[in-house]
Design a binder for these strands. Structure first.
Lengths: 234, 234
DNA sequence: CCGCCTTTTACATAACCTTTACACTGGCTT
DNA sequence: AAGCCAGTGTAAAGGTTATGTAAAAGGCGG
């Protein structure tokens, strides 16, 4: 199947056995190297999805392995260290590690971080499109065609209106400020008397309302707008 | 559109300009406030991903901003300070800061820490935490929607009322003076005949009471108000 | 130059905040 | 105990600001 493959580089054999068993039970293929040199040579394997790299090792330590791998290696790296030292953390991250975990750690935290990294990588790899179809509270966005349906009825939005509506819907149920919308959609800071966002929202409302029972965008005075999730209302 | 948004609160304009340029070049949306009060009001924006907060500022210093934000605000905070003082560091972290950096710092280190915090937050977000909720004595605050529930019954507060109630609830069981409320919420010193705070509290009470069994805000004559914790009372 | 989209302008309106006024309270003095 | 008075509760009035929206102006690609 498409089980993810992990490479653990750590000289602590007790720990690697524990991790192998635990992570194996969580559905990963686990492989171990117990020194920097052999770890480095295995690290180039494209089949490896993630590397757990211990900092403290004889011969070649974790930082040196990281450096040797180079800044733009393909496989993500999660650093493990005995020290809770901030310097180490910064150094590791600057050398291109994707995350950092201080020993001793909880199994569950390690797992969470591994999953988070892999998820991020997956998203980056197939960033063709995050979600093609969004549907909230009877309003549907089709990113492929950029078409909008409200209660099944299609309608036309301009580019900016579409972007604003998308952002509001992706954050439905939470307040979105005009500052945010202005910077992310219009690409400029919101100046004191800029009414563009208001206008766009007004236009979106005007287009949504005929097909809808009530206003799906709620104004929070002084704070921004909320796209209503559809259940609780006020 | 996926850029992370940073809010810098620092009265040193030279520094903020430098940081804006540098961090902007690293792909962040940067916004600056040069005093605690305006920073505080911007800090509630859900669109902000991380706050860089200077400790040393006139009027309202970084610790006070942090305190006012409350212990369970959703946006991570990185504290900046001129002192290399450990006391400051501990205090900041206790007040809910996520990291701490002493000035002067290398911009690369700042960047590494920013990235580290954002990554950590992403992991936490992915794993749990549906909404940031505050609940004391049967009164619930939902910061994402600025909605308030009293004994399960939803009600509408204005922005100022919401801020005052938030502050009182975050300091429930302790006296909060009108001076404090005026400075933090209204952004001005309390003048002798200013009755605004009284009015707002009165309005909050009027809105809370119908859904509640008793008055949850107690007046301490000559001192201020207390939001009752719910158990022991006087 | 035309048409579509965005931004600005302008004004009406609604929501909100502050002030004013007066009633009431509790503590203090006499 | 009565009276005084600063502090408080709150209704109502007044003033301010944010928002909704129509219409005009500006931009931009054809």
């Amino acid at each position: 199947m498409n089980n993810k493959r992990l490479l653990i580089i750590d000289d602590d054999r007790e720990l690697t056995e524990l991790l192998t068993e635990y992570l194996g039970g969580e559905g990963f293929e686990v492989e171990c190297c117990h020194d920097g040199i052999s770890g480095l040579s295995r690290a180039y394997d494209k089949g490896i999805d993630l590397i757990l790299l211990d900092v403290m090792m004889p011969e070649l330590n974790g930082f040196e392995v990281l450096k040797a791998l180079g800044g733009n290696h393909q496989t993500p790296v999660l650093m493990l260290t005995a020290k809770g030292d901030d310097t180490d953390r910064v150094l590791g991250l600057e050398l291109g590690a994707d995350d950092y975990l201080a020993k001793p750690f909880h199994h569950r935290e390690l797992l969470a971080r591994i999953k988070a990294i892999l998820r991020r990588i997956d998203i980056i790899r197939d960033n063709h499109e995050p979600v093609a179809l969004v549907k909230v509270n009877e309003v549907e966005l089709n990113h492929a065609t950029r078409q909008v349906c409200c209660h099944g009825q299609p309608l036309e939005l301009t580019g900016t209106e579409y972007q604003i509506l998308t952002y509001l819907m992706e954050h439905h149920g939470t307040i979105v400020s005009k500052e945010t919308l202005s910077e992310l959609v219009l690409g400029r800071k919101l100046s004191p008397f800029d009414r563009s966002i208001d206008m766009h929202v007004s236009n979106i409302r005007r287009k949504l309302l005929p097909a809808s029972d009530q206003d799906k965008i709620k104004t929070i005075r002084g704070a921004g707008y909320i796209f209503l999730s559809g259940e609780s209302l006020t």
